[in-house]
Every structure is written in structure tokens, then in C-alpha cells.
Amino acid sequence: MRKHKTAIMFGLAVFLLAVVLLSVSIGPVRITVPEIIKIVLHKVGIYRNTGGWQAVQESILFQVRLPRVLGAVLVGAALSTAGVLFQGLFRNPMADPYIIGTASGAAFGATLAMLLPLSLVFYGFGLVPIAAFLGALGSVLLVYRLARFGGKAPIISMLLAGFVTSSFLVAIIMLLLTMSDRLGLKIQQVFSFLMGGITVTYWQQIEVIAPLVVLGIVAAMFFAVKLNAFSIGEEGAAYLGINVEREKMIILGVGSLLTACAVSIGGLIGFVGLIIPHAMRLILGPDHRLLIPASALAGAAFLVIADLLARTLLSPAEIPVGVLTALIGAPFFLYLLRRSRREYAF
């Protein structure tokens, strides 16, 4: 059984590498896989020969394709990991990375940033992604504070506080949209954030987000055993020696940080963080020690594919990637759900 599981993990990693290469290769300018490998090896100084590719291919590879595809890898991995964390903690089938207000917080932040007649670039990030990042974390903090009473933040209170805070923020966004003419707000820009799309303009963005996401996933793996204990509920977890309130706060923090990283370069991409963890649980079972790395890899691969389709299907027009995640994800997930003979009782 152990070997079997290692094989699945290895398979997922190889699959991710394959879709990354495929996605980098496809576009208005074709770059074949051997060319990609040569160009990258040349860049890092292992391969000295400069023949065999055009300069335009090299600049497209480094300035357009690679940052975008790596962006998709990071966003997919971050959202899926956050999804596993929140589903495990909340024991709720509808839990996704956005469940406690991150999405509306990010959207609120982004919309406010779009209203400001100000533009700045900080470590490669514009005002909108920075505001989205802060909005996501801010709303989670607010929800946690609202739900906390007498040293405890019960999960039900958090779900309710999250839902109400979200509704409130969405109402403000709608109000701002209604007044868009007067405020000079570009509705199109707001919508494209809400529907999600990988936007990486500078390498620096990858350089900032990548360590955070990797750190988040590694941290999540350290909490896998504790998440397993949370499967039997907070009371049961306490009997198994879990310091419930403390671990809950850390797990929420890691999940929210991952989500905030994802929204800052991907906007609100739905569905990935909901179905990838469910799909992995159907295939691999409920042990979080396996579920977390598997979801990170599968989520990354899934979003790379979705993003590839988003930019090629109607090229040169782009389909919002959030639309594609649902279009591909929903049938695939339903197939898994029907095929699986395991009782999937929540």
C-alpha cells in the first residue's frame, strides 16, 4: 500500500512537469519541448551552445510563458492546499479556500484599489494585487475576531461570521459598481478580477509568491496529523491531545496566507480549491499526510491545463480561467463521484 501511494505521488509530479512543458510550448509562437529544455539549460549556464532557437522564442519563454505557467502552478497548488486545510478543519463538504471571507475581502480590496487614481509598483506588484492580498487576510482576521468569544472560536460561529461578512462586503462592492459611472470605476476590470485569471507581469511577483506558497504547503504538511484528528470534530481532537484553539488558529492562518497569495496573482479562481481536495480524497483516502502533497500537485497541474485552454481556445481572446476550471472540473468530479464505490458520507 505504501509503495502504491509513493507511486501515485511520483506520477502526479511527473504529470505536473509534463503539463508545464506542454503549456510553455503552446501559443502563437511555438517553442518545442527540446527547445525549451535547451533554452533553460543555456540560461542557467549548463548548456553552452546557442544555436537552434530564435531570440524571440527565448524572450517569449522568459517574459511571457514561463512566468504565467509558474503563476498557474503556484495558484493551483496554493488554492488546493488551502482547500484541503479548510475542508479538514471545518468538516464541511462545501468548504473551499474562500469560505471564511477571503474572496469577498480580496474583491473588496481590489475594487477599492481600482477606484484610487494612483498607480504604484512594489516588488513587481501593482496596487490591485496588493490590496487583494491585504483584503483577503484582513477579512479572515475580522471573521476570526468576530467569531471568537471567551477564548474560543467555534467553527459554526466562524462559518456564520464568514458568510455574513462576505455578504456585507459583496453589498458594498455592488454599491460601488452601481455608482461606477460617477466614481470612474471600470466594471470590466472588476469583473475580470472576480472571474479570475493568471496575471503575472513581472518575475519579481513569482519571486515573492513562490517562497510563501512553498512555505505554506510545507507548514500544512506538518499539520497533517493534527488535521486527521480534527476529522472527528473539535471535541474528539482535544481528547486525542490536540490543543484545539491554537492549532485551529495556525491552520486558518496558513490556509488564509495561501489563499491571499493565490488571489494576488490569480484573482478569484473558483472550483479548484473545492474539487481537487475532494477528488484526491476519493482516490487516495482521507489521510492528510498524503492528501496535502497530492492536492498541491494535482491542483497545480489542473490549473496549468485550465489556464492553457483559457488562453488558446478562443485565441487571441482569453476566456476567464475561473470559467474553465468549472467547465472541466465539474464533469470530471461528477465522474469520480459516480465511479467511486466508497461511501462518501459527510
Binding site: 468538516r91 463538504p93 496529523v225 493534527k226 486527521n228 484528528a229 476529522s231 472527528i232 470534530g233 486525542l240 491531545g241 490536540i242 480524497r281 483516502g285 482521507p286 489521510d287 466508497r342 461511501e343 462518501y344 458520507a345 459527510f346
Partner: peptide, 17 residues
């Protein structure tokens, strides 16, 4: 109650947490 498809062995193993 446990909302996920745990096997009997996996549930008992939780006792080792």
C-alpha cells in the same frame, strides 16, 4: 462521527495521534 471515508484501521490509528 467522522465525515470522511475512514477505514476501521485508520480510525483506530487516530488513537495514536
Amino acid at each position: 462521527n467522522i465525515p470522511f471515508a475512514y477505514t476501521v484501521e485508520e480510525v483506530v490509528m487516530l488513537g495514536r495521534t
